[in-house]
Amino acid sequence: MSASRDVKELEAQALSLPLDARASLAHRLLQSLEEVSEAEYEWLWGEESLCRAAEADSGRTRTASGAEVARKAISLLR
């Protein structure tokens, strides 16, 4: 079984838990990220950026220009 398949399976199991169990699990997972070394942190963000780039390239994600984001932010602040 591949790592991504394992993660998807774990995610499905975690999402089926009751709210309090999901909250507890989320808290423990977030705490574990504080123990990540700088090298691991950089690797994780590198992996995340590759995933986001692949989603954008495939069209699964809508992209927006910086100007569009700025316009929307300004309109939300008004």
Rank of each mutant, 00 (worst) to 15 (best):
D6F: 12
S58L: 05
S65Q: 00
L44M: 14
V36R: 01
E42D: 12
A21D: 06
P18H: 09
L76F: 07
E68T: 05
Q31W: 01
L44F: 14
A3H: 05
A23S: 13
S32F: 07
L33S: 06
K72D: 01
Q13D: 11
G59M: 03
G46P: 02
L50H: 13
S65D: 01
H27F: 09
A39S: 08
K72A: 03
K8R: 08
A23I: 15
A3D: 03
A73N: 04
E48Y: 09
R22W: 02
A64F: 11
D20N: 10
E35H: 09
D57W: 03
H27M: 13
L15H: 07
M1H: 15
L76N: 11
E11I: 10
S75K: 15
A23C: 04
R62K: 04
E48P: 00
S24T: 08
S75N: 12
L17P: 09
R78I: 03
A53C: 02
A23Y: 12
A64D: 04
Q31E: 11
P18Y: 03
S4K: 13
E9H: 02
E9L: 05
D57P: 00
R71H: 08
E34F: 14
S75G: 07
L30Y: 06
E55P: 01
E47H: 05
L77C: 00
A14Y: 09
